[in-house]
Write a protein that binds this DNA or RNA. Structure first.
Lengths: 105, 105
DNA sequence: GCTATTGTTCGAAAATTATCGAACTATCAA
DNA sequence: TTGATAGTTCGATAATTTTCGAACAATAGC
């Protein structure tokens, strides 16, 4: 498909990161990526239409939390662990450590 | 006035905390409370009408981030540092450490 | 070329949140 | 009791987000 906008580390804003992580579905995506390293959008299916999922990926991407690259016809996503660690040290691991709450379906 | 609802530590949800902190005005309140220990609502004036500020205090209070108590005719607010530390260790200090961005007025 | 697969984008509708003025409540002080 | 102060609540409007279907774009394989 085409290239995505990924903010540079210096452009990553705390507010945007916190906001992106404050949604259960997006948090669920982040946790899954943390467990599995990387995954396509389809593999991260949240039981919702593709357009809805795409919206959430975009929020995460534009906040600087995930990196998306093309891989054939699909998109491979991974956490920007190092970038986040550099900008907000410890934040991601705290969020991942917090007990997971049910995600509504 | 009257008593406020403050969630017990076990009721504090990550999503709500992150959401509450994702707003510039609320983040500014939290930072100020961190610096000054405690403050009345008036002292935390964000240059907006009282009803708007009251709304933000409520979001912070119901997320479990601040504790509000009556003090004469005013309300004294303080961070629930220890409770937050117990529930999401490290989170608050990371947020406070992050460089402050302008709050629009 | 055609077809299937994977996601994005668009547009509209629904839901949530923010904003503010006005009315209200509670406390203190004179 | 009157007045002043501090902040909440209500109600309405505005702004932002979310949600989803439908149309679209890009790649892969036949």
């Amino acid at each position: 498909m085409r290239q995505f906008r990924h903010p540079a580390p210096s452009e990553i804003q705390l507010e945007s990161v916190l906001y992106a992580l404050s949604d259960p579905m997006r948090l669920s995506i982040v946790r899954q990526l943390a467990r599995e390293g990387e995954a396509t959008c389809a593999a991260l299916d949240g039981g919702r239409p593709k357009s809805s999922m795409s919206h959430h990926f975009r929020i995460l991407r534009e906040a600087g939390i995930i990196k998306t690259r093309n891989s054939g016809t699909s998109h491979m996503n991974e956490l920007r662990r190092q970038d986040l660690e550099n900008v907000f040290p410890g934040l991601l691991s705290i969020v991942l450590k917090a007990p997971e709450t049910e995600v509504a379906r």
